[in-house]
Simulated scan of single mutants.
Amino acid sequence: MLGHSQEACLHQLFEFQVQQSPDAIALVYQKQSLTYQELNDRANQLAHRLKQLGVGPEVLVAICVERSLSMVIGLLGILKAGGAYVPLDPSYPPDRLAYMLEHSQTPVLLVQQALLPILPEHSAQVICLDTDLDSTPAENPQSDVTPDNLAYVIYTSGSTGKPKGVAIAHRGAVNTLLDINQRFSVTRTIAF
């Protein structure tokens, strides 16, 4: 079953859940919520836009957003396009953000419009998650990504004072999630 397969990518596990319960609430943030189908459709719109910009397997996409529904839409959209996300915390100092953008060489940066003024100079194509996605298709995009492709790159504090990127493939992330589900008996309904 794909829903529990170690040979699936992260976004494929999500798409399996969409098929199982499209009308169930997938995401709640403050007073906003999205069903699995709504979240999937919005992530698909972003994925199609990213693919138009050349995002595919092993292509890094930076994402600098506040905690929100947009954050999850952005992460899923990147994965569905086949790319790997590089999270940038908007509370980081500008020089750390600049280093991470330069070091990762991401060709695309996802951001919320309100955060544009805090970003350092960079050469990435910018997509504002809260304004730029209305006209793209909502069906699942075709993806050539495999479990051995990158899912994300996290920058650590770095023992030398410079952040270091740690690359994680889909296989490792899926194995960790499946292990957590099994160890802690994660069920369909979990409230935080």
Rank of each mutant, 00 (worst) to 15 (best):
P141S: 07
P141M: 08
S143H: 00
S143T: 01
S143V: 02
D144F: 00
D144R: 02
T146E: 09
T146L: 09
P147S: 03
P147A: 04
D148I: 03
D148R: 07
N149R: 01
N149Y: 01
N149E: 02
L150K: 06
L150V: 03
Y152G: 10
I154F: 13
I154Q: 05
Y155M: 15
Y155V: 10
T156Q: 10
G158F: 13
T160D: 13
G161R: 03
K162R: 12
K164E: 03
G165L: 03
G165T: 10
G165N: 05
G165R: 04
A167H: 09
I168P: 03
A169E: 13
H170L: 02
H170M: 03
H170A: 07
G172K: 01
G172W: 00
A173R: 06
A173V: 13
V174K: 00
N175S: 10
N175W: 01
T176F: 15
L177E: 04
L178W: 00
D179C: 15
D179G: 13
N181P: 05
R183T: 06
R183P: 07
R183I: 00
V186Y: 06
V186I: 14
T187E: 13
T187A: 15
T187R: 08
R188L: 03
R188C: 02
R188E: 15
R188Q: 07
R188M: 04
T189G: 11
T189P: 03
A191Y: 07
F192L: 10
